[in-house]
Write a protein that binds this DNA or RNA. Structure first.
Lengths: 348, 348
DNA sequence: CTGAAAGCGCTAACAT
DNA sequence: ATGTTAGCGCTTTCAG
């Protein structure tokens, strides 16, 4: 009940009858110490319940704190949760602790979080850039030796390491797959705003797949949404067009939820679908959902290893790591109902 | 490129030609300062890119660090991600930063994380207890004034605040719902190990619902699993019994994924299902999934507010907060295919 | 093998 | 309105 002061190194030293430095030596296995002193110090530590104050230690040692700062847009999104988990696994092996915050996709909030992390002297900084954020304020800290790694999207205004999915080739592969199945009009439902990095890259993959197949790019088939509900509405709108698409590509997991929900509600089993980013129940949907799976754990792990290498003195130039995606063909891209129509073009 | 030392308060003071304390005063809006000095200090701060060292500040001020320690079993599980996000939203409003780690449901790892957090002098500690973990080692810190709050499951060996879902009444409600639909043999698929808190509570709710309806408790209808795949296998096993259940209750989100997947693969649209904890695509499954929804955001928020109240001096006795669940009836608990069979008992 | 003194970057408590 | 001194809890440096 009483708010007793936590014991300090000096308290332990007093208890044992040695100097503070001796206790410190024993605890950090710095310098030599007689087995007996060692024993008595350890006993006193246990008795008093002493725990070294890491802040005090770090301040004296002068280096960065043994923490890693991580900023993500949304902790509730399992994509970022998995990324964070992978980062933690890697850095904990080095004795580092994760300092984490959510930007809620707000540039100011991201900035404030980063400032807090810098004030805490994190040993490295990992950031999923919020939309519209600028990172030139990180130039000085980075020049001073702070490893900075961007995840999922590149940073703006700062040249630094970056780890992203192979968005472009991933979507290209998914769209090519649909084209190979005979589809000629494919709708694209991406994130908003339209110039968000992932949206741009994925749209580029969409366009390059069309171009490769000699298909026209029709702006009317491209739309975007923020939420699952908006994605559902966009799906309805696309399918209500005079010349509706026969297939859709949903450019992220939230969009996929909305599109799947809407196709199901509308009973449209005749529309093919490929989703970018996997979903837990993808395989049991009817039809099962074909996806271009990302690998969030690999993204987190790669980013953490890159940052640790920098911490260990890697001075090579900053580079962008692409984490490959993987096309998982299930049922939604290969619809029996449609086979007849498509057959006319290919079979005869 | 050069690893320049980060500027300190003294550097700023020297630059301006004032004492360190004056700079400190300006920055913390402590005591008075002339507008002119203020101006010059701020200019120097900007010029040098000075950022106060929070660790040094906190050590001097003496109180706890402005961080919150959070331990969860798995960062990738959206349930815990949402909990964490809600906590962060609440504590950031108080200027606190989240220190976060994953126990991977391992008691030793949880213990190590907590020790690290204590060494960092976190201002409060929030823990989802790992299975088998003991928390009596937190007695001293708690007695010394550290707010400790357990989430999702109560702590062991320590009396502290706790925030959990209303597991028992939630499952009771779900099972009663199935009984009201005419089901008499209801299978239970819960977590493992069987004496995990949430499993015990949810099983208790299952039993009380049966008892209330005068139905027998059949141990053969109760099973458990760790993973989605195991839950699928358990589903198959239950339905292969001589007298199979006509309905199932899946006691958490992972179990629900496995059961849904298996029922779909087996084409068993004649088995009713209620899941504890909502799933993103629950409403578009065929049939749509009836769930007992938890409210992870409310759990996180309640826990954070409770801890903050303690930090603010609340000395009332520790209590357990129940966050209500909500039965969301969709299609899976009300199967037309089954209506005929059930009708024989009730209708005529 | 151990200890004393100094100092990390900052602020509390007194000066002035 | 500003400066000085001391000290937070620890480690470094230099002596023994």
């Amino acid at each position: 009940m009483a708010a007793n002061r936590r014991p300090t190194l000096a308290d332990v030293a007093r208890e044992v009858g040695v100097s503070a430095k001796t206790v410190s030596r024993v605890l950090n296995e710095d310098g030599p110490s007689s087995p007996e002193t060692r024993e008595r110090v350890l006993a006193a530590v246990a008795k008093l319940g002493f725990q070294p104050n890491l802040m005090a230690r770090n301040i004296r040692v002068g280096g960065p704190d043994t923490t890693v700062g991580l900023v993500v847009p949304d902790l509730g999104n399992p994509f970022f949760g998995t990324v964070a988990g992978a980062i933690e696994d890697v850095v904990r092996a080095r004795g580092l602790t994760l300092l984490m915050g959510s930007s809620a996709e707000d540039a100011d909030r991201e900035r404030a979080l980063i400032q807090t992390f810098l004030a805490r002297r994190v040993s490295m900084l990992m950031v999923v850039p919020a939309f519209g954020a600028d990172h030139s304020h990180l130039k000085a800290p980075r020049a001073a030796g702070l490893p900075v790694v961007f995840l999922d999207r590149p940073g703006v205004g700062l040249s630094a390491d970056c780890v992203v999915s192979s968005n472009r080739t991933g979507v290209h592969e998914g769209v090519s797959h649909l084209i190979a199945r005979g589809h000629r009009r494919i709708g694209f439902i991406g994130d908003l705003p339209a110039n968000l990095y992932t949206r741009r890259e994925r749209l580029a993959g969409y366009r390059s797949a069309l171009a490769e197949a000699g298909l026209p790019y029709d702006r009317a088939l491209v739309s975007g949404a923020h939420t699952q509900e908006e994605a559902a509405a966009e799906t309805t709108a696309l399918l209500a067009r005079p010349q509706p698409p026969t297939a859709l590509i949903a450019a992220n997991n939230i969009m996929a939820l909305g599109v799947v929900a809407q196709l199901t509600r509308a009973g449209r089993k005749d529309v093919a679908l490929v989703a970018f980013d996997d979903l837990p129940l993808a395989e049991v949907l009817e039809p099962a959902l074909t996806v271009v799976a990302q690998d969030p754990a690999a993204i987190g792990e790669t980013a953490a290893r890159t940052a640790l290498a920098r911490l260990d003195g890697d001075r090579t130039r900053a580079r962008t790591h692409m984490v490959p995606t993987r096309l998982v063909v299930r049922g939604s891209s290969d619809l029996p109902h449609h086979a007849g129509d498509l057959g006319r073009h290919t079979g005869g």
